[in-house]
Amino acid sequence: MEARMGVKALAFDVFGTVVDWRGSVAREAAALAAQLGIQTDPLAFADAWRAGYAPAMDRVRKGELPWMHIDALHRMILDSIAEQFGFGGLSEAQRQHLNTVWHRLTPWPDAVAGLTRLKQQFTITTLSNGNFSLLTAMAKNAGLPWDCIVSAELFQHYKPDPETYQGVARLLNLPTSQMMLCASHPSDLRAARAQGMKTAYVMRPFEFGEHVPLPKVEPGEFDCVAQDFVDLARQLDA
């Protein structure tokens, strides 16, 4: 029990931590390009689409844009980069389908097995900036065994706003000290820790490609450092 640190629920970041957004988006982009006879760099396309994510959310957080969920922000970014990557001629139906690739992301190989194991001992939930319908569709498509789905959309605040971390604890009727955020992004973990959560850093060395180094973390900065979800389950005695 000591390894569990009094934690009763685990909240998971999703994009990059649970699912491989880069590989998934690139595969669909490559298939679409081949179908339409378009020359493109699918990995560069995935990277460019993702690169617009944080700036778009920041515009919402600063009030420069009204509240918009992630599907709407993803579509705004897609429309801004489509021409650059040869997708400018897509029909509206094709753009809509491509935009929902984020609903169909593939989990990392350890994700389902690790989550299933953790679920035996803890309540497991998402805490993602992805919208509720996106996370629901993703879970169904990928077989992700969540006990519940919590989206930033429920609070109309994006991480790292404090309202998101406080909000998931409130929904589960737990103090933040009995919750642990599990994420591959140190900035997310630091924001959760500032709200009283325990933290688990899960390494995802291929999230941004094999040539991009892992972010730097200080020794002992987080409560757990795990190679993957199965390793995290072992460390938490699950």
Rank of each mutant, 00 (worst) to 15 (best):
G6K: 06
G6C: 07
G6I: 06
A9C: 13
A30N: 07
L32C: 06
Q35C: 03
L43R: 12
F45A: 02
M57T: 09
M68S: 14
A72H: 01
D79M: 03
A82V: 09
G86N: 08
R95S: 02
L98W: 15
N99R: 05
L105S: 03
P107C: 11
W108K: 06
P109L: 07
D110P: 10
A111S: 15
L118N: 06
L118M: 05
T123M: 09
T126Q: 00
N131R: 00
N131L: 00
N131C: 01
N131K: 00
L135H: 01
C148N: 05
S151Y: 02
G167V: 10
G167Q: 04
V168G: 01
A169V: 11
A169Y: 09
L172C: 13
N173W: 02
L174C: 10
P175N: 08
T176Q: 11
Q178V: 11
C182A: 15
D188N: 12
R190T: 08
A194D: 15
Q195H: 12
G196H: 14
K198A: 13
K198Y: 02
T199L: 06
V202C: 10
P205D: 03
E210Y: 06
H211L: 13
V212R: 13
P213F: 12
E218V: 11
E221M: 09
F222A: 10
A226T: 06
Q227P: 00
V230I: 15
L236I: 03
D237C: 07
